[in-house]
């Protein structure tokens, strides 16, 4: 078993931010996306990430991944298509 699994805290002992690693992992994307509704949960996760040597690198990794996708996954509409669409709308209007 990988070392991180044996270190994973489950019940008992003090949990950073009063939330366990599994619960943080499950909500990590929502946390990064700013989509968690409950401010208390946001605060718990924030405190957990500050203190947890296991979850913080995971959080960092997911952020790097999402940044990478947003920077490299995009294709702009070809300028010719834009011109064609603007022209079509102009023509449509002048028919009225």
């Amino acid at each position: 078993m990988a070392f991180w699994k044996t270190l994973r805290r489950k019940g008992g002992g003090a949990l950073p931010g009063d939330i366990d690693c599994e619960a943080v992992t499950a909500r990590l994307y929502e946390y990064i996306d700013g989509e968690l509704d409950d401010p208390q949960t946001v605060e718990k996760i924030r405190r957990h990430l500050d203190l947890c040597k296991l979850c913080f690198p995971h959080y960092d990794f997911e952020k790097a991944f999402l940044r990478y996708i947003s920077e490299h996954g995009r294709t702009s509409a070809p300028p010719e298509l834009k011109r064609r669409i603007f022209k079509a709308i102009l023509e449509e209007e002048s028919r009225d």
Binding site: A2, W4, T25, P57, D60, F61, A64, Y68
Partner: peptide, 14 residues
Amino acid sequence: VSVFEALQDRDPSG
């Protein structure tokens, strides 16, 4: 599966 779990020892910052 989470990729992070598979490679955290080799490339944790992706």
